[in-house]
Nucleic acid binder design. Structure first.
Lengths: 200, 200, 200, 200
DNA sequence: GACTAACCGAGACGGTACGTCTGGTCTTAAG
DNA sequence: CTTAAGACCAGACGTACCGTCTCGGTTAGTC
């Protein structure tokens, strides 16, 4: 038994005048997500997305001028805004963070992030979007580190932003080398122990 | 008289019997490198390499079954084996390391490494090769950290291999986010200061 | 401030109420003619005409339901009503006729006629319009032949309408095979000599 | 009832080395002919032909660089080489000729010729091919006229080639204006009577 | 010395996806 | 109801690579 048209009935969308139709955007991103789940990231071509969304290819290229741009949009739609829940200590908070992102990156939607990093290496627009995203997340991470520093957990020389980037780099490293099964708790220790007060 | 096909005269190579012709390998990798320099990484297709090397496509696929495999070969050929020169302190040694790799990654050949990381996200063979390479470099880095630890530079809780991976992650992070102009010295401090004895 | 879209300022046209706006028709046909002159017949798409005329595509399709219909309209607007000036003999009159149409068909507007013939091969509406036009011109031509026959120039068996069609066919043949540089005088002789009294 | 794959099983064709595979050419032209019969000339897109022939689009474009080129090939394959059978008089011979071509032009393959004329109006290559074809047929026709002239059927001033072109023009005129139901006999008379000895 | 096996250049082949273009239909907002 | 504007679906266009295949020719080793 086979479903040639996709996962659900696709009512025809029409123009709603000389302005962007949100239903179209929704249908396209939805179709992209479905393809991700069904065929994996290799099947995610502009062609396939257009076909499944019953959208014209020109419409796709109008709003997302490249595969990279579409990837970014799909990722932004899928990722929940992770709020760093304070677990009392920085180590515990970061361990929870690692656990959360590793789990997410393992999902079909999360795998898109690795793709975005890949695409960024040869597509300047994606690189820019990725850099914007990195900075945004860096700020959120640095705040957590800041709070920890205020609590007196960290040694004197620690700089919140630099430390945040080190934390982030460790996670991204695991992602791009396919080691998302690393132990989050242990990783948090390996990255942070040196900076905690009380380790001499 | 002029040579339209490349940078140098390409004498026809023939079979040298029932064994691999080293001249062919040389010609192919050389052609790949030339294309990298001339057209950049986007122009590095199997098709283009075969044409430039005056090699049959089947020959390429015989020895390097995918674009990724070829990329890896090109990278391995181009990279010098970096020996970590001991600068007296770990910080200084690592600063020199960062400076070296950042400089290399900015060259045409070095850019291939970013490509390999990209390719690894969707090509299992490349991922495996990358992982092998990572481990190999990790060992070399860990040795340097070990020596530093033996000298008593590091605090008690430091684990050489874990620290080495953190050091490496920081570098790769700068690569994939296009920030190879970061200051190596400062980066070394940001990554290592917490682990050095004497910072409380 | 400059006008990127065409050769002259295009004041915005608005609806003039519940009736056809002649300014719009004028603007559209004018734009089509401009495109013909600037880009040639290949550039004459509905899209391009709408853009240049600053008209909505819906407006175009409302009044000219297909590319063919627009072509016909453009041609009808451009062609002058050729009046067959009597040169004394049928041969001379027809030579003048050939000269006139060959000259016209060579102009940008005249080239549209070849396009119409082309379009007629696959668009029934255009075919019909072309047939209407052919009959209309045939009548005009037949009249000239009739007058010649009345003067006693033609042999007994000549039928005005049939001869007119032969005359016309010779012209169209030169058009569709791209030989508008044929000598009109000579062509008139080649087509008509057999039918003239005094050639035995 | 519907046939999704075409009219017959299509065995996969492979390369036969670094040279053109005649089976591929055959399959492509055959597919084109099938489409003509099934969908008519409007359905004859490069895309459709490639799909039906199970051929890559690149293969099509390699050997027939444009739709026009393919049309010409299909026509040349379909048309039998018409031999002008001598019916005793030129009128009768030409009447038979008209009957033959009108009948052929009405078939699915014959309709291609009208398409070629259409395409020639905007594709220089097709125009050239068409002109070549016209000249070739003109020679054949002129020979018939020549023989008639040798028999003394024609008046003194008749030029074989010019008359042949008039004969041809009359036929093409009926084709492009969609009047292939014209009476061949009558047409032959209308075109030729003036040139026959004995009509004064 | 003939034979075989693998190598090599060449390039045709079936495919997939690309990014662009045009054709026609539709809706909106303004008049 | 008309108009300008332009979003939208649809699908053909011609191009670029992919990875597979066959060919014809070469060379080195085996019988």
């Amino acid at each position: 038994m086979e479903d040639l048209t996709g996962s659900c009935a696709k009512p025809q969308r029409r123009s709603i005048g000389a302005k962007r139709n949100p239903a179209t955007e929704e249908a396209i991103l939805g179709a992209a997500q479905e393809i991700l789940r069904d065929k994996g990231v290799k099947g995610l071509s502009m062609e396939a997305v257009a076909k499944r969304a019953r959208a014209g290819k020109a419409t796709l290229y109008k709003w997302w001028p490249s595969r990279g741009a579409l990837l970014v949009a799909v990722y932004e739609r899928a990722k929940g805004e992770h709020v760093h829940e304070d677990k009392g200590t920085l180590i515990a908070t970061m361990a929870a963070f690692y656990r959360y992102v590793f789990d997410f990156w393992r999902t079909a939607e999360g795998q898109v992030f690795a793709l975005i990093i890949a695409e960024a290496q040869s597509d300047a627009d994606v690189a820019e979007a990725l850099e914007r995203y990195r900075k945004e997340r860096l700020v959120a991470l640095a705040e957590v580190v800041d709070r920890s520093q205020a609590r007196g957990e960290l040694i004197e020389g620690a700089q919140a932003e630099a430390l945040a980037e080190t934390i982030m780099a460790a996670a991204w490293m695991r992602l791009i080398t396919g080691r998302l099964d690393s132990d989050p708790e242990r990783l948090a220790h390996e990255v942070l122990d040196g900076w905690m007060v009380g380790n001499r």
